[in-house]
Amino acid sequence: MTTPVNTATDHDTDNCPVVVVGAGAWGTALACAFSRNTSTVLWSRDPAQLEQMVQTRINARYLPQTRLPDALMLEADLHRALAHVTERPNQPASRAGLVILGTPMAGLPAITEKILADLQATGGRILGLIWTCKGLDAQSAKLPHEIMQTELEAADKTVPIGALSGPSFAKEVAQGLPVALTIASENEALCEATIQTLHSPHVRVYQSTDVLGVSVGGALKNIMAIACGISDGLELGDNARAALLTRGLAEMRRFGVALGAQASTFAGLTGLGDLVLTATGDLSRNRQLGLAIGQGQSPQVLLNQGITAEGARCVGAVLERARTLGVNLPISEAVHAVLFEGLSAQDCVTQLMTRDPARDI
């Protein structure tokens, strides 16, 4: 596949190179943002999609209204894409960079395995692997960092890892509108490289060491967004939405702390911030699913149509882990009952409102 030549000359040479793996909406948006600061490659597993982007400089499938920056390079071969950020012993000019995983939860184990295999084969070194997906794996009930740790152990490989998260819609990031994100990792060098490479007048990046808390916030906010969408679809009013947001935040924090996360994380961008955006923003797929259900559409029909709502995919796994911890998640339980157990949207509201009184914590 012929790729556009990166002709940009104004990138900061201190910024490390980046490859974004996955040309969905969020992967493409992040590639656009990174390419404004540093040498960036976007990899797509679909050669036809990539060829179309090469010809038109538009990702028609996911971001049809956004033109890709001229500096952004496109690649269909994963090995060649990774070579852009891999420092190799026999190539003195090579430079270690960041691999940003723009794949959904379902694709995280497989793509991580392929990347680690490539690094093993070449003896190369990268600055780190950063995932952007949010949720729990439906089969294993693992969070993203647990999946990454499993893959690293299987490959007998040591690579710094981290999560890039926060309240963000792909469309707005691709357009260069202001956004604040969090890079969460226990590796200081990875955090510093991410901040230096992504931070700009349009993108503000904060640092956290609470990878677990960031992952939990990213997973449960999608479930709460479905609940808020159902409430708005039923036209229950602003008071009901405010109650769901507040109690949803408490549910997120309760679950996260039980797993070992820091309570303070849930008051930040990846907790409250992401919850508010996803539960109230019109671009939110999880909110849109809830709205459609509240307006009378069948949950099973909607899910069978292939609607991508991570909250629906992970709510069962969340409840599975919550039960092993002895943690009560009433909103998550109600959403699961509506999606998969035949509970009507109105009965869902009744179920939540008639629960026994509890402390507001």
Score class of each variant (00 low, 15 high):
D282W: 02
S168C: 12
L249Y: 05
S215L: 03
A312T: 03
T308R: 00
A60E: 09
G213Q: 09
L198E: 03
D210A: 09
I183H: 14
R61N: 10
L234D: 08
T9C: 07
Q297H: 05
R253K: 15
D10V: 05
N187Y: 14
A292Q: 06
L108P: 13
L98N: 08
L291W: 07
T103G: 00
S39A: 12
A242G: 13
G311A: 02
M353I: 04
I147A: 01
G296F: 07
P178N: 07
S332T: 06
Q346H: 13
M148Q: 14
S208C: 09
L302P: 09
G290A: 02
I58D: 01
S231F: 02
I307W: 03
A309N: 11
M252W: 11
I115E: 13
D282S: 09
G97P: 05
T13N: 08
N328G: 08
D156N: 15
G311Y: 00
L212G: 11
N37R: 12
E51D: 13
V301K: 12
G248L: 01
T194F: 13
S298I: 04
L181P: 09
P104K: 01
N59K: 07
V41I: 06
L136E: 14
L319F: 06
P167C: 04
I100F: 00
K134C: 08
V41Y: 11
L152D: 03
V41H: 13
K114W: 12
A345C: 06
V20H: 10
E75F: 03
T308H: 04
V20T: 10
A33E: 05
T112H: 10
A155L: 02
C228G: 01
C16Y: 05
D356K: 09
F340W: 14
Q52E: 14
R95K: 10
T7M: 11
A163N: 13
A309M: 01
K221L: 03
I331V: 10
S165H: 08
K114I: 09
I293A: 04
Q55T: 04
A337H: 04
L198G: 04
L236G: 03
L50H: 12
L136W: 14
S165C: 05
D46G: 10
A31D: 13
Q49N: 10
G316N: 13
L82W: 02
A154P: 14
H79D: 15
L249I: 07
K134L: 07
T112M: 10
F169P: 06
R321W: 05
L30A: 02
G306P: 05
I195V: 15
L50Q: 15
P201N: 06
S284R: 00
C16R: 08
G306Y: 04
T86P: 09
V214M: 15
E235T: 03
N59G: 04
A261C: 11
T158Q: 12
G260I: 03
R355S: 01
C348P: 08
R355T: 01
F169L: 07
L234A: 02
R36T: 10
P89D: 15
H199L: 15
L289I: 00
A81E: 13
P201A: 03
G97R: 09
N90D: 15
A155F: 07
G306S: 02
G306Q: 02
A76C: 12
Q295P: 04
L289E: 00
Q120M: 12
V335R: 14
T66E: 09
N90A: 12
T3R: 11
R88S: 14
V276M: 07
I126D: 12
D70G: 11
L277W: 01
S264Y: 15
F266N: 12
G123L: 01
P47M: 05
G123C: 03
A71S: 15
